[in-house]
């Protein structure tokens, strides 16, 4: 099976869907001739033409409003936010319009918003956000956050085919950093299904996105050092959550760490912790622990950014505390 990068997996997924379904089209800032800020859509303009690869004005509200409208008339738009941070300018379109249309008008809104998100690239406070928790709270949206090339391709295809507005969080630091086996040709990763990235018996780590890789490294190290067996659950979909997978893992291990790169307070981890406390209380052998970024805007200085972000050591510390409890 070919080994490709995370960013190429996204590109291939988009490409295949555009080949497969002529109602799929792309819109965003500088995605055409320039190929997008991260070159996800490089070469798309020449192959698919300017009707299907649309450069837009620098106005996220307009992009998301147009995408919503196009979806309502039967198209399948895939809108790119140049950086996930900028989605704030289109927030109203997403949460008030896209998310509620199906409930108000009983119409499908098959749109996808791609959000290059995450820190660790020295992008500072305006180019590093993980804004998923804002949308997690908004009923009517689906949220996915792949951590591997395989899931990236499978989820972009599933997102495009889904009749709901789907927010696709693609982590910038994983773009060229993470490579993996990706089958040629068509497959989808079902939205709402998590994945056991590493089976284990003693502690569960519930995580998603870039933090999956930190958790895997920490789990490996802990197993080697102390023989403690850590299970790593990659949520892949944040909305809907794979509750069955989360609860079955916690029921198996009795100890759980929730890790995400987003800042801790009000992050998705809180909801997962509540879910576990409510439905797996009697299986808990230790307090639920969380690791996330510190509650400050993303610092620009590399050393401060390093301090801000969750890392392998912080996850290891939390895992050791759980193991010792």
């Amino acid at each position: 099976m070919p080994v490709i990068s995370y960013i190429d997996a996204i590109s291939r997924g988009l490409w295949e869907e555009m080949e497969r379904d002529s109602s799929v089209f792309l819109l965003g800032e500088d995605i055409g001739e320039y190929g997008g800020a991260f070159k996800v859509t490089k070469g798309f303009l020449h192959h698919f033409g300017s009707d299907r690869v649309v450069d837009t004005v620098l106005a996220e509200s307009a992009i998301l409003g147009a995408a919503t409208g196009a979806a309502l008339v039967g198209m399948k738009p895939v809108a790119e936010m140049q950086f996930a941070d900028f989605v704030t300018c289109g927030f109203n379109q997403l949460v008030n319009n896209s998310a509620s249309i199906h409930y108000r008008w009983n119409l499908p809104v098959p749109m996808v918003v791609r959000l290059p998100s995450g820190a660790g690239i020295h992008g500072g406070p305006f180019h590093s956000r993980n804004p998923e928790a804002w949308f997690f709270h908004q009923p009517g949206l689906k949220l996915v956050a792949p951590s591997t090339p395989y899931d990236a391709k499978g989820l972009i295809k599933a997102a495009i085919r889904d009749p709901n507005p789907v927010l696709y969080f693609e982590h910038k630091r994983l773009y060229r950093h993470i490579k993996g086996e990706v089958p040629d040709g068509d497959y989808v990763v079902e939205i709402g299904k998590g994945d056991i990235k590493r089976p284990g018996n003693d502690i569960s780590v519930i995580t998603y996105g870039a933090a999956v890789h930190l958790a895997l490294e920490a789990a490996e190290m802990l197993e080697k050092q102390s023989g403690i067996s850590v299970e790593v659950i990659d949520l892949r979909s944040l909305m809907p959550l794979d509750k069955d997978l989360i609860l079955s893992s916690v029921r198996k291990t009795g100890k759980v760490l929730i890790a995400h790169e987003d800042t801790l307070t009000g992050g998705i981890g809180g909801e997962i912790a509540a879910l576990i406390a409510e439905f797996a209380f009697e299986s808990l052998d230790a307090p639920i622990k969380r690791v996330g970024a510190r509650d400050i805007p993303t610092p620009f200085a590399p050393t401060l950014e390093e301090y801000f972000l969750p890392n392998k050591e912080r996850i290891l510390t939390a895992l050791r505390e759980l193991a010792a409890f």
Binding site: G254, F281, E282, S283, L284, D285, A286
Partner: peptide
């Protein structure tokens, strides 16, 4: 003397 116990037992252990 159960009510007077000072030891903590997790929900799992109790279960």
């Amino acid at each position: 003397t159960s009510a007077e116990t000072n030891r903590f037992f997790s929900p799992l252990v109790m279960n």
